[in-house]
């Protein structure tokens, strides 16, 4: 099961990296490869771009050649769980520009505890409020570390 997923993953990630390699090479070619003083800004990126294309194509070839055991799937529920957490993190970071750290972080913590870990709402609320307040008191208040602020000044 894992092997089939990795094979598919290898082909996709190899293709993505090959595309990145091509992008790096085209960008590098638009800068000086060699100047009067020596190698220019395009020199080093050009060569690691070439290496990236070659190695990622090898990866794709290797993966395509390897045998697979039957048609199997990756552990999608587990991946879904991780992606939900990542999405929640991304949304809370996006909200930070408008709501500030304190509120966005409390929302993130509440979501993680209540939805991802399926704890009672009261537990989630306690964890969210306590952790957000603790962060606020430790970093901006006690250590003067700046954090994103919202319309309420925190």
């Amino acid at each position: 099961m894992l092997r089939a997923f990795l094979k598919k993953g290898d082909v996709i990630s190899g293709a993505v990296l090959a595309a990145l390699g091509v992008f790096i090479i085209t960008q590098a070619r638009s800068w000086d490869y060699y100047t009067l003083d020596g190698p220019g800004p395009g020199f080093f990126p050009f060569w690691y771009g070439v290496a990236m294309v070659v190695l990622s194509l090898l990866l794709v070839l290797n993966a395509a050649r390897a045998d697979t055991d039957g048609d199997s799937k990756a552990d999608w529920p587990a991946t879904g769980r991780a992606m939900t957490v990542w999405l929640a993190f991304a949304v809370s970071v996006g909200l930070m520009d408008f709501l500030g750290f304190l509120i966005s972080f409390a929302l993130l913590a509440f979501f993680l505890v209540a939805v991802v870990f399926r704890r009672p709402f009261t537990t989630a609320a306690v964890v969210a409020v306590a952790s957000a307040l603790a962060f606020h008191l430790i970093f901006p208040v006690a250590l003067s570390v700046s954090l994103p602020t919202g319309p309420f000044g925190f």
Binding site: F89, A109, L112, V113, T123, F135
Partner: peptide
Amino acid sequence: YVLFPVIFGISI
């Protein structure tokens, strides 16, 4: 469920 939000907070 307490640890993970804290790690996210410290990361931010």
